[in-house]
Every structure is written in C-alpha cells, then in structure tokens.
Amino acid sequence: MPVTHLKNTFVMPECDGDILYVNELHFAYPDGHAALNGVSLKLCEGDKVALVGPNGAGKSTLMLHLNGILRGRGDVEIAGMRLTRDNLPVVRSMVGLVFQSPDDQLFSPTVFEDVAFGPLHMGLPEDEVRARVDAALEAVRMSGYRDRLSHHLSVGEKKRIAIATVLSMQPSLLVLDEPSAGLDPRARRTLINLLRELPITMLVSTHDMAMVKELFPRTVVMDEGRVVADGLTYEILEDESLLTAHGLEKP
C-alpha cells in the first residue's frame, strides 16, 4: 500500500480563505445546546483538509453551516460571498455537501434521478443535466450504475453515488461528512483513491485517522465547538498530548 508522506512537499497554504472563510461562528440548537463556540477556519483553492474530533465536537454542525442549512452568529463566506438569503441558491450549488448516511443522501428511486436532482434544481437545461450526470458518474467510476435502483446498491456504492450527486452540481468546495464510516476495507480503499483523484477543494470530517494520514496534508481538530488545532497533518499526528487531550489516536 503506497503511503505518501507529504511532509517534504507540503506547506501550509497562504491565503485569505478564497474558497471558504469562517470567522467566530457560534451556534446553539433550539434545545439550548451550544454546538459551536466561535469556530474560525479558512480554506484555499485546492486544499484537501481533514476535520477530526471526538463525537459531539460539532463537525457535522459546522458543515451544515457551510451552505446555509443552519444559520449561526458569525461570518461564513464562500468564495468571497457572504451567506445571505438571496445568494443561498448560488452558494448551495458551490458547496457540495454530502451527508453521513447515504440513505438520507440518496432519496430518489433511481441513481439517475438522484444525480440529476442537483443540476435540475439549479435550473439547467435537460441536455446539460444529462451530460453532467454522465460526467459525475464517470468521475466516481460508476458509469454503469446510471439506471440502477438506489436500494439495490451496497453501502460502498451508495457512498460513491452520494458523492456523484453533488459532483453533478460542479461545486467549488466538496464537504463530506464521514465518508469512510461503515465501509469494508476494499470499499474504503476505492473511496480513498477516488478522493485523491478528485481535483476539488475538500473538507472531510472523519474518525478514520489512517485515511487522514494518507490523504490529507492539512488537518483541523475540533472539540467542544471550537477549532483546537489547525496545521500540517504530520505535525498534528506527532503531537501526542494534543491527540490524547481530544480523544484521538495516532494511526
């Protein structure tokens, strides 16, 4: 298994968050539980960033803010655009958010209808929609699955189709919530290869530290609704006291 160590080639990006800029984001759920307590984060073009942290750290909550499904106090900017009610449709086509459970992400009877859902609701013409569906399925190596029924797919296939459902919107930022959870080794391997090849900026939350080490040059650690560390993956993985303090393990 080729494990690439990126310590020599990769340096932390220098930019102002041209793809994603989050500043001092606070959010409490209606039941009063404060899930985000001042999160700040910047992502640049081409970044592939892992988001790690214990259960309940607020990773999923943060992700729901990135395309305005949840609205907290603080700034969220996508490609320099502040999130407002009016630009919500644009933002949603720019941020491809894939949820943890593929059964929630794939809500249409057939694969085609699901992958076409995003482009259709962006108001694209029919030919363009079809072209994008084909391209997205090709990108996740699932071209032959176009007419399959969603409930017949294996978990690994569902996960890849779930990624295709947002790729068809041609987002500039891909946000994946625990993509490798529940996959067998082979499906996990396929997914890792797929994520490595995809030429898109991505933010990926996960508990899979081996995948983090292998795939993501940069890691953001969250705990209790805050970013507690943000830096080069190999440095973070060396910092044992940081890892144990936040319930993480070195792979």
Partner: peptide, 24 residues
C-alpha cells in the same frame, strides 16, 4: 428524524419547495 435529514439533503442540492423531474 430521517425526513429532517432528507430535507436537509434536498435543500443542500437546491430544492426550494418545487420539485423538478425529467420525464425520460
């Protein structure tokens, strides 16, 4: 609760109250 999550997945992909379908 599942229907809530599905709704989120739908609006994340541009659903805004009106459903469009392709009739193949």
């Amino acid at each position: 609760e599942r229907s809530d999550r599905i709704y989120n997945a739908m609006i994340a992909r541009g659903y805004a109250g009106h459903l469009y379908t392709l009739n193949p």
